[in-house]
């Protein structure tokens, strides 16, 4: 009889212990958190950024965070299923650009999820031409389109890779209505495909990145793989925060020559188009706001220490922590600007 009571008691105690983590989930992040990301690559910038933030958060809060590179569609689904804060998502501007471009599987992140704090910027989004190209600047490219020359731009459609292309078309339209028709997309896949279209002579300009393409710009001009930058879409204020040495053989000052205001791609009569690829959290719409607040507080403390910034800069990212409320305002404004650019092209062509 005594044994049975003890057994029962042990059973209840075990159940209470096991249930303890769930009782705690109402107010704060649980002990084991899954951070899903919108990319399937563990070598890409989304994974890098997420890994840096996950490490810092896990250490600061004394919890486990595992980064899972499941891709956008699966990540959104995982986030949909879990409002307890056991699943968080980190992604970048693609999350709303995919929606603006109408890509299958992209809901409106501002309506269907809660946009969380931003953590970093990858300032690397760039456009390049072959080293022996007649085009040396964006001015040359826009002038060629105006003069009736067809300029083929290799992009991966439906997001970050396309937004600069849309801006080019918009700038051509502002400069000379109708000339945007001469800027045409060569729709292809990842970076290797974009590079290959250049080497095959199928494109005149390619979308790329400082990190992925810089070494090609350092090759001798007679090397068939050699390239040169014509445009870096990041804001000058963002690039100025990059290490002075820049990356490889391209210094920060060199980079600034390819960015606004030196390289101008107008977005309207008043200013230039710029695009910083920003990484931020996305939360389930019904997740307890206390958990979001806990993440905000933890990140504020982590960024105040300053160690995470050093690690981000090591990987050529620009630290850019904005608490949730500021991030929502900032990203909402940014989305509205790009929506306008995309709409302008759609109505013009």
């Amino acid at each position: 009889m005594t044994i049975q009571r003890r057994t029962l008691f042990a059973g209840f105690a075990a159940a209470a212990l096991l249930a303890a983590p769930f009782a705690a989930t109402a107010q704060e992040l649980p002990r084991n958190v899954r951070m899903v990301i919108g990319s399937t690559s563990t070598g890409g910038d989304t994974y890098q950024n997420s890994a840096i933030v996950a490490d810092a958060l896990a250490e600061h809060l004394g919890i486990n965070i595992k980064v899972d590179a499941v891709g956008a569609s699966a990540a959104f689904k995982a986030l949909d299923r879990d409002s307890r804060g056991t699943t968080l998502m980190v992604f970048h501007d693609q999350s709303y650009l995919g929606n603006l471009y109408g890509v299958t599987g992209y809901a409106d992140p501002f309506a269907d999820y809660n946009v969380g704090p931003t953590v970093a910027i990858n300032p690397g989004n760039a456009y390049l031409v072959p080293a022996n190209s007649p085009y040396n600047t964006m001015e040359d490219i826009l002038a060629a389109a105006e003069a009736g020359t067809r300029v083929r731009v290799a992009i991966q459609p439906g997001g970050v890779s396309e937004i600069g292309f849309s801006a080019m078309k918009n700038a051509a339209k502002l400069r000379s209505p109708g000339s945007e028709e001469n800027i045409v997309a060569v729709n292809t896949g990842g970076q290797s495909d974009k590079n290959q279209t250049m080497w095959d002579g199928l494109s005149d300009v390619i979308n790329g990145s400082i990190q992925g393409n810089e070494q090609f710009t350092q090759l001798p001009a007679d090397d068939p793989k050699a390239m040169k930058f014509v445009w870096i879409t990041a804001r000058a204020a963002t690039l100025e925060q990059a290490p002075e040495a820049g990356m490889g053989g391209t210094t920060r000052d060199d980079m600034l020559q390819f960015a606004s205001p030196v390289t101008s791609v107008p977005v309207d009569a008043e200013g230039d188009f710029t695009f910083d690829k920003e990484f931020f959290f996305l939360f389930n719409k019904d997740m307890d706001p206390a958990i979001a607040a806990q993440i905000d507080t933890a990140l504020t403390e982590i960024f105040a220490k300053g160690e995470i910034q050093a690690r981000q800069k090591e990987s050529f990212f620009i630290p850019n922590f904005l608490p949730q409320a500021d991030a929502q305002q900032h990203l909402g404004d940014k989305r509205d600007t790009y929506r306008k650019v995309i709409a302008e092209i759609a109505t013009g062509s």
């Binding site: 070598g43 090759l219 090397d223 990987s315």
Partner: peptide, 12 residues
């Protein structure tokens, strides 16, 4: 990923 996590550029 091993290279990028260390901030090493991989290219030509």
């Amino acid at each position: 990923g091993a290279f990028t996590l260390q901030g090493i550029q991989v290219g030509p």
